[in-house]
Design a protein around this nucleic acid. Structure first.
Lengths: 108, 108
DNA sequence: CCGTATCCCCTGCGATACTG
DNA sequence: CAGTATCGCAGGGGATACGG
């Protein structure tokens, strides 16, 4: 469980993976899909996911540069987990509509 | 997804929930089940889960004091998610046996 | 036995500015 | 456009000691 949790942990990772579940996406497409995610963090998350072999990167050299990211076969195995996260989160929200996102993991 | 993730986030939360899935447990039983989890963090996690109405606490006053924790109905709805986390983690480990737990969420 | 208070570290994240 | 460098902050978590 800890391994799977580590794979999807992080404020943006699930959203990023969900976006990539729809198909390959360029850096800028991801930025557009997740406007509040800074380039730095996006880059960090993608690098981390790539290191874990969950995501692959294809770079077109030239100008302007272009990079396309897509899930690896291993990355695609996360789909059921993401679906379950969505289902569960949805159910929790129905029970407790007032919850904030960080209300559970926070200390105070 | 973020909500569900927040609910199970934390290094020990999933293991704690899994333990409680088996039935009510006292503080010391939980400590025994998770020896590397300090009392402070255990208390923190339980308090957080209690605040989120995922776990309930029953205290016997007296000496020595005793407290019993159990899942609420809402908490029990997390079971499919935990199962999926287990399944996915297992699958990931089969693909990449060398992964460390923090290798995905870490920076470097 | 159950829990909390302190202290410290580590790391994820945000903002901004910069390079190729 | 893609990605990195720097700075700063917040908070989870470990060790330890203390309180109820």
């Amino acid at each position: 469980m800890e391994v799977a949790l580590a794979a999807v942990a992080g404020r943006w990772t699930t959203l990023l993976l969900r976006e990539l579940m729809h198909g390959p996406r360029s850096f800028s497409q991801l930025r557009a899909a997740l406007p509040k995610l800074s380039a730095k963090v996006l880059s960090e998350r993608l690098a981390t996911l790539a290191r874990a072999d969950l995501v692959e990167c294809e770079r077109q050299k030239g100008f302007p540069s272009h990079a396309v990211y897509q899930l690896t076969p291993v990355g695609r195995t996360l789909r059921p987990l993401l679906i379950e996260l969505y289902r569960t989160g949805d159910a929790l929200l129905r029970e407790r509509a007032a919850w904030g996102i960080r209300s559970v993991s926070g200390r105070g």
